[in-house]
Amino acid sequence: MIMSTHPTDDLLLHYVTGGLPRPFSVLVASHLAFCARCRVETERLEAVGGGLFVALEVRGEAESGLEALLARLDEPVPIEPPLPPSDAETSVRLPAPLRAFIRKPLKSLSWHEVLRGISIVDLASIKADGARARLVLTRRGLKVPRHIHDGTELTLVLSGGLTAEQGHFRRGDVMVVEPSVVHRPVMDDDEDCLCLAVTDGAVRFTGLIGRARQLLAGY
């Protein structure tokens, strides 16, 4: 497997064509806030979409909706609620697509510690399409017990960093873990590591200690 800090090409395409489950879309959109390479690629894929959009065959019937729409052009524009400012209580600045769903200071979210040094919060506002998103805060330097993911898991690093079989990841990087890959990340020492983790399956710890903790934590 080639090491990459970006979503795979398949994921980017699926993001652009609109079929990607919502939680994955939020993660990809958040990555784009950090990554010029993927922004350019996304623009190209959208340009392809524009070309196919124009190429769509249409029924010959005349358009009827214009008059109704012209009558609506002067309607007042609904004001979108402003995006909350980035979190003042922590040094972590969340990318806008993520902030739009969280809208609260990080500290006031309902965190629970699932393993010593690892706290998570479920982002119910993003959960959809059979996938879920969580914020995972892991103590700096921690070695996470060996575990397996049932589904595909994408992790976007928001602070600190981690090293896993897939490589070394820092703020803005995306780690893709395919189903059934045994996984044992080690956190960087410099900062606590905050990640957005999105998965369409469960996480299972494989080691004896991990399993026991999992039972205790209901993870």
Binding site: F34, P95, P97, A100, G172
Partner: peptide
């Protein structure tokens, strides 16, 4: 999804 916000908030 507010994808359009991405461009205004890039780092």
């Amino acid at each position: 999804l507010t994808v359009q916000l991405v461009m205004a908030d890039k780092e």
